[in-house]
């Protein structure tokens, strides 16, 4: 079971701030593909990975990052702090 968290327009497109997902995905990319296959709103949110960032357990990673032992995955657009 992994906590999946969404922010900004990713959250709006998916319609949820977070959810728990039962998955056997080995990498972030596998999880993205699993979600995209589920429903259209996921397919829309993950349509352009160039415009998305991902963090596992609150550290920025690439989409090929492994999920073994990970508790939380977050998807969001490029950050606009400052």
């Amino acid at each position: 079971m992994i906590d999946v968290v969404y922010f900004a327009w990713v959250r709006e497109r998916i319609g949820l701030p977070s959810e728990q997902i039962e998955t056997t995905a080995e990498t972030v990319m596998d999880l993205v593909n699993e979600l995209k296959a589920r429903e259209e709103r996921y397919d829309l949110a993950f349509a352009d990975l160039e415009s998305l960032r991902v963090a596992v357990d609150q550290e920025l990673v690439d989409f090929d990052a492994p999920l073994a032992g990970v508790r939380e995955v977050a998807f969001f657009p490029p950050m606009t702090g400052g």
Partner: peptide, 28 residues
């Protein structure tokens, strides 16, 4: 600090117009 906070600190800004009709995410 400012350069890194802009693109590496997880904040997202949404602009809301005075009449409430426009709400849009600021893109990086």
């Amino acid at each position: 600090l400012m350069d890194y906070l802009k693109s590496r600190a997880p904040f997202w800004k949404k602009e809301i117009s005075r009449d409430g009709t426009v709400a849009q995410w600021v893109s990086a």
